[in-house]
């Protein structure tokens, strides 16, 4: 995955926050995506300006003990978001 890509949430997604996790519903396709707390953090950092590398660096700095896992998890989470149409790339 190109780490310089900038993920941007797809407009009009319905978002429910439950205990720090997210339920993302796309009314256009009826697709539903459920994320854990890590996915919720990644989602909140997707603004169309930050790159994948930026998001990974922010989370790795916030959770240094998990930095190694974060470098692989963030691209995987974003790939899942993209496959469900929850984000598109700037």
């Amino acid at each position: 995955m190109d780490l310089q890509k900038r993920p941007l949430p797809t407009p009009n997604f319905r978002i429910e926050t439950l205990d720090g996790e997210l339920l993302l519903f796309n009314p256009a396709s009826d697709q539903i995506l459920q994320t854990n707390q890590s996915g919720a953090l990644v989602w909140q950092l997707c603004d169309g300006r930050r790159t994948i590398a930026d998001i990974t660096a922010i989370l790795a700095a916030a959770y240094p003990d998990d930095a190694l896992a974060i470098t692989t998890d963030v691209p995987d989470i974003l790939a899942s978001f993209a496959s469900h149409g929850a984000i598109h790339w700037q």
Binding site: E16, L18, D19, E21, L22, L23, I32, Q34, T35, N36
Partner: peptide
Amino acid sequence: LTPAEAAF
């Protein structure tokens, strides 16, 4: 299940 998993 977490609430989000349950809702899903």
